[in-house]
Amino acid sequence: MFAIEVDNLTKIYGKGETTVTALQDATFKVRPGELVAILGPSGSGKTTLLTCIGLINEPTLGTVVIDGTTVADGGWHGGIDLKRMRREKLGFIFQAHNLIPFLTAQENVMIALEINGLTRNEAKKRSVELLSALNLGHRINNYPSALSGGESQRVAIARALANRPKVILADEPTAALDTENGKNVMDLLKKLAVENHSAIMVVTHDHRMVDGFDRIFTVSDGRITDEKIS
């Protein structure tokens, strides 16, 4: 079974005369544990692709299947519980600022676990494990405002991985970091995704970051070229 199956996915923004076709006829499949890097110029449709797969943005046409569940077939699939899919199957990491400011590092991870039905104690235990694996064992009681950019991003990774999702979607997770930190964060992300057997799609502007990925998607004007690296 594939982690992600996308068939003829098209996203058109707007209505009437001012429509933008941000994504056109994307078709691909990603296996569990596969690492996919997404490259492309600004405005080419990379974020649109991630948000359509991530059930944040309703596709206009085409089908999206996540871990065997059809979530979109020309708009959302009838009766699909998007929130539940998001918390059980998907993990998100974005550029910055997506930690909850009034929760500590540990609580930011715990909340993802608790909304997925874990008890407080289970959530506590797993959040400490995750944060320790990301070398943040000493920062668990800090608020995001007291964390560096790299540390924040590692907390976001811990949160994205918390529920062992089948699919991890990351939109420029290293954009706000310097090269060294960026590389560090990217390596941890890849390592944990592989351990977890999660499919991962990472948008990046930086060609130097694509080392170690299995595939590279290049997006240009809403069209995707799929390049396998062997």
Partner: peptide, 16 residues
């Protein structure tokens, strides 16, 4: 708003 959007992003139920 951002916090709420983030909560929705990670799949929080409305009751939360």
């Amino acid at each position: 708003i951002r916090v709420i959007a983030t909560l929705k992003l990670i799949g929080s139920q409305n009751r939360v």
